[in-house]
Amino acid sequence: SDEEKKVRDQAKRLGVNTEQLLKWARRQGDEDLVRIVERLLRS
């Protein structure tokens, strides 16, 4: 999905993997991002 591509691009920009991005999203309190990243991790 578009959202998932955006998440992957953001992880690349930050230089982190998906698990690290999830931690980062939780720290930001970004519920939408957390949900998308969790979906990516499960897929």
Rank of each mutant, 00 (worst) to 15 (best):
S1E: 10
S1A: 10
S1Y: 10
S1W: 10
S1L: 08
S1G: 08
S1F: 10
S1I: 10
S1V: 09
S1H: 11
D2N: 08
D2T: 09
D2V: 09
D2H: 11
D2A: 09
D2G: 08
D2P: 11
D2R: 11
D2L: 12
D2Q: 10
D2Y: 12
D2K: 11
E3D: 13
E3N: 12
E3M: 13
E3L: 14
E3P: 11
E3W: 14
E3A: 13
E3V: 12
E3I: 13
E3Q: 09
E3F: 12
E3T: 10
E4R: 12
E4K: 10
E4S: 10
E4C: 15
E4Q: 09
E4L: 12
E4W: 13
E4D: 05
K5F: 05
K5T: 05
K5M: 07
K5Y: 05
K5L: 06
K5W: 05
K5N: 07
K5G: 04
K5E: 06
K5P: 05
K5V: 05
K5I: 06
K5Q: 08
K5R: 07
K6P: 04
K6L: 11
K6V: 07
K6T: 06
K6G: 03
K6W: 13
K6S: 07
K6C: 15
K6F: 11
V7Q: 05
V7E: 03
V7R: 07
V7A: 06
V7Y: 04
V7P: 04
V7T: 04
V7S: 07
V7K: 07
V7N: 06
V7M: 07
R8V: 07
R8Q: 04
R8S: 05
R8A: 08
R8L: 13
R8P: 08
R8M: 11
R8N: 05
D9E: 11
D9P: 06
D9V: 09
D9L: 11
D9C: 15
D9M: 10
D9Q: 08
Q10P: 03
Q10H: 09
Q10E: 09
Q10T: 12
Q10Y: 13
Q10K: 07
Q10N: 06
Q10G: 06
A11K: 10
A11Q: 09
A11I: 13
A11G: 05
A11H: 09
A11M: 14
A11L: 13
A11C: 15
A11N: 04
A11Y: 05
K12R: 09
K12F: 03
K12I: 09
K12A: 07
K12H: 06
K12Q: 05
K12W: 03
K12D: 04
R13K: 06
R13P: 02
R13E: 03
R13V: 04
R13S: 04
R13M: 05
R13H: 04
R13N: 03
R13W: 07
R13I: 08
L14H: 05
L14S: 03
L14Q: 02
L14Y: 03
L14G: 02
L14P: 03
L14M: 06
L14D: 02
L14A: 04
L14T: 03
G15H: 09
G15V: 11
G15M: 06
G15E: 03
G15A: 05
G15I: 08
G15D: 03
G15S: 06
G15C: 15
V16G: 06
V16T: 03
V16R: 05
V16S: 04
V16H: 08
V16D: 02
V16Q: 03
V16E: 02
V16Y: 14
V16P: 03
V16A: 03
N17W: 15
N17T: 14
N17L: 14
N17D: 09
N17P: 04
N17R: 06
N17I: 14
N17Q: 04
N17S: 13
N17M: 14
N17V: 13
N17G: 07
T18D: 04
T18E: 08
T18W: 15
T18K: 08
T18M: 15
T18F: 15
T18S: 07
T18G: 06
T18L: 15
E19T: 05
E19I: 09
E19Y: 08
E19V: 08
E19R: 06
E19S: 05
E19A: 07
E19D: 09
Q20S: 04
Q20L: 09
Q20C: 13
Q20T: 08
Q20F: 09
Q20M: 09
Q20Y: 08
Q20A: 12
Q20V: 07
Q20G: 06
Q20P: 01
L21E: 00
L21C: 15
L21S: 00
L21R: 00
L21Y: 02
L21N: 00
L21I: 03
L21K: 00
L22G: 00
L22N: 00
L22K: 01
L22W: 03
L22R: 02
L22M: 03
L22Y: 02
L22A: 01
L22P: 14
K23P: 00
K23C: 15
K23D: 15
K23A: 14
K23W: 12
K23Y: 10
K23I: 10
W24K: 11
W24F: 02
W24E: 15
W24M: 05
W24P: 12
W24Y: 03
W24V: 12
A25W: 08
A25R: 00
A25D: 00
A25E: 01
A25I: 13
A25Y: 03
A25Q: 01
A25M: 08
A25T: 01
R26M: 10
R26H: 05
R26P: 02
R26I: 12
R27L: 15
R27F: 12
R27S: 15
R27Y: 09
R27T: 14
R27V: 13
R27A: 15
R27E: 15
Q28V: 10
Q28L: 12
Q28Y: 14
Q28W: 14
Q28I: 14
Q28G: 01
Q28E: 04
Q28N: 10
Q28T: 12
G29W: 14
G29K: 10
G29T: 11
G29P: 02
G29Q: 07
G29M: 12
G29N: 05
G29I: 14
G29L: 15
G29C: 15
G29Y: 14
G29A: 07
G29R: 05
G29F: 14
G29H: 05
D30L: 15
D30T: 10
D30C: 15
D30H: 12
D30N: 13
D30P: 08
D30A: 14
D30Y: 15
D30M: 15
E31A: 09
E31G: 04
E31F: 11
E31R: 07
E31L: 14
E31I: 12
E31Q: 10
E31M: 13
D32G: 05
D32A: 12
D32F: 14
D32Q: 10
D32W: 14
D32R: 14
D32T: 09
L33R: 00
L33I: 03
L33H: 00
L33E: 00
L33P: 00
L33T: 01
L33M: 02
L33A: 01
L33G: 00
L33W: 03
L33F: 03
V34Y: 05
V34S: 02
V34M: 06
V34Q: 02
V34F: 06
V34I: 11
V34T: 02
R35M: 04
R35Q: 05
R35S: 05
R35G: 03
R35I: 03
R35E: 07
I36F: 11
I36W: 11
I36M: 10
I36N: 02
I36Y: 08
I36E: 02
I36Q: 04
I36P: 00
I36T: 03
I36G: 01
I36K: 04
V37D: 00
V37L: 14
V37S: 00
V37M: 05
V37R: 00
V37N: 00
V37F: 04
V37Y: 02
V37E: 00
V37Q: 00
E38D: 02
E38V: 04
E38A: 02
E38Y: 02
E38R: 02
E38T: 04
E38P: 00
E38Q: 03
E38M: 03
R39M: 09
R39D: 08
R39C: 15
R39K: 07
R39H: 12
R39N: 06
R39F: 07
R39A: 11
R39V: 06
L40I: 09
L40N: 00
L40S: 01
L40T: 01
L40C: 12
L40D: 00
L40A: 02
L40K: 01
L40W: 10
L40M: 09
L40F: 10
L41Y: 01
L41D: 00
L41Q: 01
L41A: 02
L41P: 00
L41R: 01
L41G: 01
L41M: 04
L41K: 01
L41W: 01
R42Q: 11
R42W: 08
R42D: 09
R42I: 07
R42A: 11
R42M: 11
R42Y: 09
R42K: 10
R42C: 15
S43K: 13
S43Q: 12
S43T: 11
S43I: 12
S43F: 13
S43N: 11
S43D: 10
S43P: 09
